[in-house]
């Protein structure tokens, strides 16, 4: 929050994150097999008398599991404690860089040490606001260097505040309302399934129309075909919803009237920017947001609003949009 906190966090750079860590299990066939089964990996190099462990398992051998991390350093605990206290209690992994120096074989004993490489300034991502923490681990097998593992996590305060959301009557988390699909608009939703926004075009006068209607507003023609939207557009106008809160929506959020490059306008969410940074005339691009297992909806993201440092999730966006 304050610069004071960042100074405090920064002081942990260079301090150990884990010291004298010992893998809970020797490298072993059952764990290799369970990994390969989960990944669907049938590489013969991972079975038989000469088996090596999949190199990407490197971190798995160092995990504390349900027993917790016994090797975690006091510095790491303190750093995480500070972040927790400041409200950044959630954690998500964003980056993993591994270098493999020697294959791991059944029977190898894994030992490791790790250092806190860097702590970022406060960053706001789609998930919420927090700090990135990067650690670098050196992994040894029977005392020999076996690999390095650089890992970046985001410690953050979730942007969504589910506790404030009105719960659905049956106590289950609310899902967005289902679209009403009828024979006049079925083609539109079919398009969405295929990640396309389809615009109706009158085959008599060629005028485009959106939303979907049974007839042409311009000439009254009943026949039509479709044009696929390029996905480019601009914010023609917008509102920010504060109240009332609807189940499955987490105010405040921006609802935009998007003018598509083709000329028609559609209502959708503007995602990837805070609600108070949406502006008329902002260039946006179409994307599709999966709100739950059954529903995907077209939404718009400002051009240049990258999801690169957004910590791997549109989770917050899903509930804010």
């Amino acid at each position: 929050m304050s610069d004071g906190l960042y100074e405090e966090l920064k002081a942990y750079e260079g301090l150990p994150a884990a010291e004298g860590g010992v893998g809970r299990d020797l490298v072993n066939e059952p764990m290799i097999r369970h990994w390969c089964e989960a990944m669907g990996d049938t590489n013969p190099a991972y079975t038989g008398p000469e088996a090596i462990a999949p190199p990407t398992m490197l971190q798995a051998w160092t995990m504390g599991g349900l027993g917790g991390h016994q090797s975690r350093s006091a510095a790491q605990d303190e750093l995480f404690g500070l972040l927790d206290k400041a409200g950044f209690s959630s954690v998500v992994a964003t980056d993993c860089e591994q270098e493999y120096l020697r294959p791991l074989r059944v029977g190898d004993e894994i030992t490791f040490d790790a250092v806190i490489e860097s702590v970022s300034e406060q960053k706001t991502t789609k998930l919420g606001t927090g700090h990135f923490v990067t650690t670098r681990m050196d992994v040894r097998a029977n005392g020999e260097p076996a690999g390095t593992h650089r890992f970046r996590i985001l410690k953050y305060a979730p942007a969504a505040r589910p506790s404030k959301k009105p719960a659905a009557k049956d106590g289950k988390p609310a899902r967005r309302p289902r679209p009403v699909i009828n024979r006049d608009n079925a083609g539109f939703w079919k398009g969405v399934e295929e990640h396309k926004v389809l615009i109706q075009r009158c085959t008599e006068c060629s005028v485009l129309r959106f939303p979907w209607l049974p007839g042409c507003n311009s000439c009254g023609g009943a026949e039509w075909d479709t044009v696929e939207a390029s996905g480019e557009g601009t914010v023609f106008s917008y509102v920010v919803m504060h109240h009332p809160p609807f189940p499955a929506f987490d105010p405040p959020y921006a609802v935009g009237l998007i003018e598509l490059a083709e000329g028609v306008r559609m209502i959708s969410n503007v995602v990837g920017v805070p609600h108070d940074e949406v502006r008329i005339g902002m260039a946006v691009r179409l994307e599709f947001l999966r709100t739950d297992e059954e529903l995907e909806v077209p939404v718009f993201r400002p051009v240049g609003a990258s999801s690169a440092d957004s910590a791997g999730s549109s989770a917050a966006e899903g509930s804010a949009a």
Partner: peptide
Amino acid sequence: PGAVLRKVAIRLGAP
């Protein structure tokens, strides 16, 4: 199966 991984560096985006 003869291929050997030397380095894997990934960044996560959409979950």
